[in-house]
């Protein structure tokens, strides 16, 4: 579903190479996790895939179900089925959460040549999905992420994911800033979306999120490359021994 080949990325403003040849394939129905030390390039990978400014792709490709992601505008990538749950969801004063969700959903449907969802159907769906994520009516009415706690912001990301029903979900350090209960709620939300037609790329620094969202494949990323790939046991190895051992083993 998502195929990344030999991806090389540098910062646009300075001569700093961040990704140095990333190869990664995420199949439909699978959950892939990417772990790695700070500065490995994990978040950069998520930003480059979703189309954020500030990066320059110097080589390689990224294709989602036939769509060349790197050539597409961010909104085209979204319409093609890509979703990034932000590490730091953005606050947008003055734009109501509901308006935001509805605008996004209908924009994607329109881009795919589908009918817009009626106000009534939308409301029904958003309420049901919000309820399972313990997002109350007040949070839906408030401006996007404004005054939300860390946990509320992350739940709001998952609500967007649930509403937009993307093919390929990237979760960028979704566990950061969450306590155990909030993490469980977020993980339950993600697990509810696991589906044979949907792929996940879960970027995390720690293993604990992967206790709740069980990955099929775990990749270790360091210095702009995937240096090791394995099963869920790889995450446990990191948890027990840290990254140092694995990186030493790779270097050797």
């Amino acid at each position: 579903m998502l195929e990344i080949k030999n991806l090389h990325v540098k910062l646009e403003e300075e001569e700093k190479q961040i990704l140095k040849g990333v190869d990664l394939t995420v199949e439909a129905g699978k959950v892939h996790a990417i772990m790695g030390p700070n500065g490995a390039g994990k978040s950069t990978l998520s930003y480059v895939l979703s189309g954020r400014d500030g990066y320059e792709v110097t080589d390689g490709e990224a294709v989602l179900d036939g769509t060349d992601l790197l050539e597409a505008e961010p909104e085209e990538r979204a319409a093609a089925g890509l979703f990034l749950a932000f590490q730091y969801p953005v606050e947008i004063p003055g734009v109501g959460n509901m308006t935001f969700l509805r605008t996004a959903l209908n924009a994607q449907r329109k881009a795919r040549g589908e009918e817009e969802l009626s106000a009534g159907d939308f409301l029904k769906e958003v309420r049901a999905k919000a309820k399972s994520l313990k997002i109350d009516a007040d949070m839906l009415k408030r401006p996007v992420n404004v005054g939300f706690s860390g946990g509320e912001k992350k739940r709001n990301e998952i609500l967007q994911m649930a509403m937009l029903e993307p093919k390929m979900c990237i979760l960028d350090e979704t566990d950061s800033g969450l306590d155990v209960d909030a993490m469980k709620l977020v993980a339950d939300g993600v697990n509810a979306l696991r589906d044979a037609g949907r792929g996940f790329l879960v970027i995390t620094h720690y293993q604990r999120l992967l206790d709740h969202i069980k990955p099929d494949v775990v990749h270790i990323m360091a210095d702009g490359r995937i240096v090791k790939t394995g099963g869920p046991e790889l995450a446990l190895e990191v948890e027990n021994n840290g990254y140092a051992d694995i990186l030493a083993e790779v270097d050797a």
Binding site: D53, R77, E91, V95, F100
Partner: peptide, 30 residues
């Protein structure tokens, strides 16, 4: 226009022009 907010909206599928309008209205809303 706040570039972060603009990217956030676009990453959800909202076109750059529609996102700019939305943020413009939000600015005037106060």
């Amino acid at each position: 226009i706040d570039e972060e907010a603009l990217f956030y909206l676009r990453s959800r599928g909202v076109s750059a022009s529609e996102a700019t309008d939305l943020l413009t209205l939000a600015f005037l809303a106060e």
